[in-house]
Amino acid sequence: MNIFRLLGDMCHLVAIIILFLKIWRSKSCAGISGKSQVLFALVFTTRYLDLFTSFISVYNTVMKVVFLVLAYATVYLIYLRFRSTYNSESDSFRVEFLLVPVAGLSFLENYAFAPLEILWTFSIYLESVAILPQLFMITKTGEAESITTHYLFFLGLYRALYLANWVWRYHTEGFFDQIAVVSGVVQTIFYCDFFYLYFTKVLRGSGKMTLP
């Protein structure tokens, strides 16, 4: 464990908690892409299948359970509890355009042609594009509540910190996870446009982010 990965995991946890509390307290999921949240729940499900088969550390197990519970709880809030506030017409990204290529690639480019490995690879590739429906929804509606932008900021920052973690681990352990690193770079690049808007718009106190 290194400081970059610990900070990254904390940013990830903060992002997920920010979103969950925003929906829970405002009793509304307006402006939130349910599709992205379903994709994240799928990412955690396919990645954490080893939860019961291999014990790494208490921290690892606890965080996996927390991420899974919060991911499914958020999907529950969006599609069941507060479904009347869900903007399904704005959440129109065709997720099959993500799932099919990601599934195909996970069969082609993986470390081992075994079910758990293919599913883990699928989760890595899927995570790099899972935020696209949310980013697409914001460009479609032309705006995002400031709390949603804070959620996206921490979510984008978490994988950027993981990139630093992988540089550090390569420097100290002499190896790197090519699939995770390439996907992590792609994932972080998708946030660059958002980061620019976040720093120029939201942090200047203009509250809501309105796209030009």
């Binding site: 990965r5 790494i56 965080m63 470390y111 973690n165 681990r169 190896f175 996870d177 090519q178």
Partner: peptide, 10 residues
């Protein structure tokens, strides 16, 4: 080569 899966990350 130096590429293999990291197993201890979330």
């Amino acid at each position: 080569c130096h590429r293999r899966k990291v197993k201890d990350e979330l």
